[in-house]
């Protein structure tokens, strides 16, 4: 069965509602997402939707803006979808819980990282292998898609006494050969274009519906880092994720986000980043 993908977040919510029903005596929820109180809950689908909706985490003076009227509107819509059409105990869903539940066929949609497809399409472990369709994230009200890239980075500490060894390690770890070996062994991170275009890697994805086209289009046109670059991403993301949990548990969105924004402003103030913008 082929469905028309949701074009915006209102449709995303409506689709989630329509897909929430019992199938063969089992409850299927229309939508899922990570829900634990850590920044990973923000960094995946939520931040893509939040950014596409035209919201930002900080303004140019590094004032937290996660409680702006637009941000509150989007957050309310996102959490409403999860509350009405999502996992029963969303706040305890880590990435691996959500992935396992999705692979067991409990959910209709999941706006998440593309590399999880290797698990979805593994017939030995997944009940939905060969049945998943892939699409771009819904667009914001102005038709824009801003898809957050979750990057893993290897860095060299400036206090390191073995910078050359670190540099050699990074070269090895990110080399074509190493990424190729990893991808072929099921560690699905073909992040170099040469690896992604390699026929051996392409052959792995040939039966994954339109996965390859969607990922390529997303990377080419929409993917970007949507967090404002700063060193306190884990602390700020964790605090923000807790606000989502509070809203899901019944606190008014404006109240929860105002409190979180005040805490985040304090974290930024303490880190000294605010003075860099003045």
């Amino acid at each position: 069965m082929h469905l028309t993908p949701p074009r915006d977040y209102e449709e995303y919510y409506q689709f989630a509602k329509a897909m929430t029903r019992e199938v063969d005596g089992r409850q299927v929820h229309g939508v899922t997402a990570r829900g634990i109180g850590t920044w990973s809950t923000i960094a995946t689908g939520f931040l893509t939707g939040f950014s596409s909706y035209g919201c930002r985490d900080f303004d140019d003076q590094m004032n937290c803006t996660i409680n702006s009227p637009k941000a509150v509107e989007f957050t309310e819509l996102w959490v409403k979808g999860l509350k009405e059409c999502g996992p029963l105990a969303w706040t305890s869903n880590s990435w691996y819980d959500t992935k396992e539940q999705f692979e067991s066929g409990q959910y209709g949609m999941w706006l998440t990282v593309d590399f999880f497809a290797v698990g979805f399409e593994n017939p030995a472990k997944s009940r939905i292998a060969g049945k998943v369709g892939y699409t771009l994230a819904p667009a914001g009200p102005d038709g824009t898609i801003r898809s957050n890239i979750w990057t893993w980075a290897l860095a060299i500490n400036r206090f390191s006494q073995k910078k050359l060894a670190s540099w050699l390690f990074i070269q090895w770890a990110t080399s074509k050969e190493q990424l190729m070996t990893a991808a072929m062994a099921g560690n699905w991170n073909p992040s170099r274009q040469s690896v992604w275009n390699d026929p051996r890697v392409a052959s792995i994805t040939k039966d994954w519906d339109n996965y390859r086209d969607v990922v390529s289009e997303n990377l080419q046109n929409y993917a970007r880092v949507c967090f404002t670059p700063q060193s306190e991403v884990p602390a700020i993301g964790d605090r923000w994720a807790r606000a989502l949990q509070e809203i899901w548990s019944g606190t008014e969105a404006q109240v929860a986000l105002d409190r979180a924004a005040a805490d985040i402003d304090r974290i930024i103030e303490k880190s000294g980043m605010k003075s860099l913008t003045q």
Partner: peptide, 10 residues
Amino acid sequence: ATTKGSHSTM
């Protein structure tokens, strides 16, 4: 191991 410390189990 269960909730990772949600706001009510922190």
